[in-house]
Amino acid sequence: MDLAKVDRIVDKYQGSPAALLPILQDIQAQENWLPREALQRVADKLQVPLTRVYGMATFFRAFSLKPRGKHICTVCMGTACHVRGAPKLVEKIERDMKIRAGETTPDLEFTLETVNCVGACALGPLVILDGTYHGNITSAKLDKVLKGIGRTK
């Protein structure tokens, strides 16, 4: 990635190490993942060890150290969704896309992620595809939703 972008983000927070979390969030928002050279640059600019930046980037679920797909499909694994069958949805997508939750297809088109509740429990089970919420999902509905981005089994 363009390291000047990293510099701008760090400068926005006056180079304060306390802002490490928001800095990484901003980079992730811009790049969709955290490239290695970006983490090194953050460490250098903030004058903190890379170990601290790396620890932070691997601790929080919001961050990905690998490039993510063009389309991101998130299955809510909150309790309400769980009792309404969310695990079956994850298994189905894993089966159809031949990836595990947390992984991206080799063509970098599709990433499957899970989240521990987004607080839209009335709609459970719930799938979020590229930011759009799809509620009360069944396996048939899921096929339809995924067809929308040209992905079917």
């Binding site: 304060s16 190490p17 306390a18 802002a19 490490l20 979390l21 928001p22 990484l24 969030q25 601290r52 620890g55 932070m56 601790f59 929080f60 679920r61 919001a62 961050f63 989240v115 521990n116």
Partner: peptide, 25 residues
């Protein structure tokens, strides 16, 4: 406003404070 990073444990007060200070939760 501080945004969390996607970690349930940061609801614990001392973890939350560590996270505001720029450390893992």
């Amino acid at each position: 406003i501080n945004r969390g990073g996607g970690a349930f444990v940061c609801g614990e007060s001392t973890a939350l404070m560590a996270s505001i200070e720029g450390f893992v939760g």
